[in-house]
Write a protein that binds this DNA or RNA. Structure first.
Length: 923
RNA sequence: GGGCGAUUAGCUCAGCUGGUUAGAGUGCUGCCCUCACAUGGCAGAGGUCACUGGUUCAAGUCCAGUAUCGCCCACCA
């Protein structure tokens, strides 16, 4: 044991221990009816991703839970895996190809997909390996990937079932279109970002033939010349099909039904009336562009107007844009504005703040775009998911997320699930070439889409001739028998596979033993960013496909930010790489620090220095353990049991404190209060165990005299007992250092499989706690004097302690050795009869006077100043208490317990004050 | 426009159901390399708990409002 280094070296230990754990199969778990399961599924990270601090926090928390429950005897299973991250991965591989001078179009779909798989073979394990460095105890043999065979089958199954129930439909709607990724996106994938834009006022002239007043000069002429509309996206005007005004708007009433000429295009459009139009915004007249704006699309349906698309999928203007065709949307905007200006039709330009959608993968400005896509009808699915949370079958921690969840669920909108990319699950939809000539003519279902009813259409079954939904390619069309069948080109939204994760990873749709035993999972730990994307949808799918919630608790931790409050992201360059931190400080340090600074659900503000907290603590654990191991004779050390007799005061105290610590750490974990659990364990270990108990134990361990052989043995047993239990408490938080120490204690198994300490209430000893507290305060006040009076540390003191009560001596007797040693007192005289020595400093404690002899060195001035200050402190408190006690209301209304407590306090303070006063006078 | 969170020591933050003297880490000051640990030990200074009002015997804690910062949601072009 002597060769244990005085520095904990995480680098040398972590990797070795981790592979040890893995080799022994300690992370593995399989159904076992005799034990209760505790199951967590990992929020699958993006397969192209690398570990960032959010992952580090997320996985630290999950690992704490899993290790803790495992120690508690649960059959703990943690299922890891990654998702295929369709768009992100495709983008990455495309970028790589571009570097090689190739494009995916050149390769073709099949070859491209091969490239992606190749890429995933090479890089897909990066994040998994990084997670391992964190020390997480996942059952790696169960690692899943959303594109695996089993999970793909689950996706197909889910699609089929929903389609058969009429919950999946397709139709022509305005969706979020990313012109860069060239795919549709769900609403969640197109977050609105406040943007400084411009509002352009454009005049649409009347059609002259209508016989409006003859043109006159000046303003009047202009006014008569047409209607001014306001728009933020002038390029879309080429696709205008009408101008809408509010039917109640007096300014425009007379124009309703009249015709305008669409500038630059020359097309005739109507002025129509629609309630949607806000009289107060802009000019009160709206250009209607059904193919490029969701509201306009709704208006157009109400007025049976044909949409005109003016943009191609790549964001360039199409042939409907006439001479602007081929121009990029933003260049077209400029060109159009230029022409409008030249013709005098651009009335004015205003600055305008508005929120516009951006692609969550590439941040490109989203184009609302009319497109034929597949949707999941969410409203019927949302009902049970709302119910499950309202009835508490699923609980959120912290609670406030419940409201956010319900609010979203209650206003849920249909989910666009088709993506025009190649990497992902191809839709299990097949078409009969023969029959779909009709299918292509499917008309838009015109169910109303208002603020309260956002269902985007009804079943189109009766119109879906020649459309076959099937896991495998049908041989012939059931309608016409033709064999010319082709599959839909689109793939599904990645979240359409992720939302099945809690059960697809356990074998669904097969009825596996795993599924039966481990589902529903216990706790989901995740970041609020994906509450809607993932959490909410998992609840929906769990209830739909399993008829049971996917998890009982959802713990939402904060977002990791840098010190300025910004989200950590690569593009901002404010990233702290967890792997760097692990290399520099160790995994335990990373984990401990992350949790320490993360209050329940609060965002985390990170800086490098914060990891020193964990590093220092790991080192403290290491060294305290080192001390214990160097000073205990292991071969004789049997585990401490209650039967051990002759415990000294300090022993009784530390065992009592340990018991309380076990209780409160467990309770904190039960309530997902991780930082609290950690700090309780930290305080106990560092401040009770190291600062006091170890110090009290030192003389016993150092003294080899025969007479204390028994004491020594007992001390060793207690030391080991407390150390072992502390290590167990700390293990979920700092798995490596605790394991490293554990294995140094003796030839033994892993701490991972040890039992979580159970609090033994019979060890709680209030008397010992009180007594040690008293001894601590005696020691502290002597140290205080030493420091205040500038007494060198090497000087040994003579201390008189004078109890004011009869039994006072007894209280201190057991602790006198501690006082001597920890206050560095050579002579300690505890006598009721002692008189105050001539030259001394005084401390006043509850029930005791303490005199520190300073023969020859007493500085009366300093001593007086010191005592005065103490007295002032007491005086302030006393005044406050007395004021309270004089308050009739307080005496009458406050609980008796509180009142008597206050009274005692007042008496105590008064007594101390008097004693101080006397001492001061005597100086 | 709606919702949520934050505001406590120089800095970063805890403080759950109101009740002894409001805590920690870090930084600062002084003293110590004392035989586990200087990634350490001992002692100390530092707070009108954002502001205003209210409820209460009692408010950092509960309620209302104000201010500042931040986040999320939302089809006003």
């Amino acid at each position: 044991m002597k060769d244990i280094p005085s520095r904990y070296n995480p680098k040398e230990t972590e990797e070795v221990l981790y592979s040890q754990w893995e080799k022994k199969g300690l992370f593995r778990s399989k159904p076992d009816p005799s034990r209760k399961p505790f199951t967590i599924v990992i929020p699958p990270p993006n397969v192209t991703g690398i570990l960032h601090m959010g992952h580090a926090l997320n996985n630290s928390i999950q690992d704490i839970l899993i290790r803790w429950r495992r120690m508690q005897g649960a059959n703990a299973l943690w299922v890891p895996g990654t998702d295929h991250a369709g768009i992100a991965t495709q983008n990455v591989v495309e970028r790589k190809l571009r570097g090689e001078g190739r494009t995916r179009q050149e390769l073709g779909r099949e070859e491209f997909i091969k490239e992606v798989w190749k890429w995933r073979e090479e890089h897909g394990n990066t994040i998994i390996n990084q997670l391992k460095r964190l020390g997480v105890s996942c059952d790696w043999q169960r690692t899943r990937f959303t594109m695996d065979e089993g999970l793909s089958d689950a996706v197909m199954e889910a699609f089929e079932r929903l389609y058969d129930k009429g919950l999946i439909y397709r139709g022509n709607y305005i969706i979020n279109w990313c012109p860069r990724c060239q795919t549709a996106l769900s609403d969640e994938e197109a977050p609105h970002i406040d943007t400084e834009g411009k509002l352009y006022y454009i005049r649409y002239p009347f059609k002259k033939a209508q016989g409006f007043p003859q043109l006159r000069s000046g303003q009047a002429r202009l006014k008569a010349q047409g209607v001014v509309v306001a728009t933020t996206r002038p390029e879309t005007m080429l696709g205008d099909v009408a101008v809408a005004v509010n039917p109640k708007d007096r300014r425009y009433k007379k124009f309703i039904g009249k015709k305008l000429i669409l500038p630059l295009v020359g097309r005739e459009i109507d002025i129509i009336a629609d309630d949607f139009v806000d009289k107060k915004f802009g000019t009160g007249a709206v250009k209607v562009t059904p193919a490029h704006d969701p509201n306009d699309f709704e208006i157009s349906k109400r007025h049976s107007l044909e949409p005109v698309k003016v943009m191609a999928p790549d964001g360039k203007m199409n042939k409907n844009a006439g001479r602007f065709a081929g121009m990029d949307r933003f260049l077209a905007r400029e060109a159009i504005l230029r022409e409008l200006k030249e013709t005098g039709l651009l009335v004015k330009t205003e600055k305008h703040q508005h929120a516009v959608g951006h692609c969550y993968r590439c941040h490109t400005l989203i184009e609302p775009y009319l497109s034929f896509q597949w949707f999941v009808k969410m409203r019927p699915l949302a009902g049970p998911a709302i119910e499950a949370v309202k009835t508490g079958k699923v609980k959120f921690y912290p609670k406030r997320w419940t409201k956010v969840y319900l609010n979203w669920m209650e206003n849920i909108r249909d989910w666009c699930i088709s993506r025009q990319i190649w990497w992902g699950h191809r839709l299990p939809v097949y078409y009969c070439k023969n029959c779909t000539k009709q299918a292509n003519e499917l008309t838009v279902d015109s169910s109303p889409r208002t603020k309260t009813s956002l269902v985007r259409g009804r079943q189109l079954t009766e119109k879906n001739k020649g459309v076959m939904v099937s896991k495998v390619k049908p041989e012939r069309c059931p309608e016409c028998g033709a064999t010319d069948i082709y599959q839909d080109e689109d793939v599904l939204d990645t979240w359409f596979s992720s939302w099945l994760w809690p059960f697809s990873t356990l074998g669904w749709p097969e009825k596996t033993r795993d599924l039966e035993y481990f589902y529903p999972t216990s706790t989901l730990v995740t970041a609020p960013e994906i509450l809607f994307f993932w959490v909410a949808r998992m609840i929906i799918s769990g209830l739909e496909f399993m008829k049971e919630v996917p998890f009982k608790d959802v713990y939402l931790h904060g977002t990791v930010r840098d010190l300025t409050g910004k989200k950590m992201s690569k593009s901002l360059g404010n990233v702290i790489d967890p792997i760097d931190i692990i290399n520099e400080f160790g995994s335990d340090a990373l984990r401990y620090s992350m949790i320490a600074i993360t209050a329940t659900g609060q965002d985390v503000f990170l800086s490098r220095e914060k990891f020193e907290i964990g590093r220092n603590f790991a080192n403290k654990i290491w060294n305290a353990s080192r001390f214990v191991l160097m000073n205990t004779n292991l071969s004789k050390a049997k585990p401490w049991t209650q039967s051990v007799q002759g415990l000294a005061l300090a022993d009784r105290w530390i065992l009592s404190r340990l018991t309380r610590t076990v209780e409160s750490v467990t309770k904190a974990l039960d309530n997902y209060r991780f930082n609290e659990a950690e700090s309780i364990a930290y305080d106990f270990f560092w401040h009770d165990f190291c600062d006091w108990y170890l110090e009290m134990a030192k003389p016993i361990l150092a003294d080899s005299v025969e007479r204390i052989a028994d004491r020594r043995k007992i001390t060793e047993l207690v030391l080991l007992y407390v150390l072992e239990n502390s290590l167990k408490l700390l293990h979920p938080f700092m798995p490596f250092v605790t394991e490293a120490v554990w294995q140094n204690i003796e030839e033994r198994g892993s701490i991972m499989t040890e039992k979580w300490p159970k609090p033994d209430r019979s060890l709680i000893n209030k008397e010992a706690e009180k007594n040690i507290e008293l001894i601590q305060s005696v020691i502290i006040s002597i140290r205080n004097i030493r420091s205040d009076m500038n007494i060198p540390h090497t000087a040994m003191l003579t201390v008189y302690i004078v109890p004011l009560k009869k039994d006072g001596c007894g209280k201190l007797e057991e602790g006198s050795e501690h006082i001597k040693r920890l206050a560095r007192a050579e002579k300690l005289i505890i006598e009721k009869t002692s008189k105050k020595p001539a030259q001394c400093a005084t401390a006043v404690l509850e029930g005791f006077n303490i005199f520190v002899s300073l023969e020859g060195v007493i500085d009366f001035k300093a001593e007086k100043a010191r005592l005065r200050k103490k007295m002032e402190d007491i005086d302030i408190k006393l005044k406050f208490v007395n004021k309270r006690l004089k308050d009739d209301n307080f005496i009458k209304k406050a609980p008796e317990k509180i009142v008597s407590m206050e009274k005692e306090k007042a008496a105590r303070l008064k007594e101390q004050k008097d004693r101080l006063k006397k001492t001061l006078e005597s100086l």
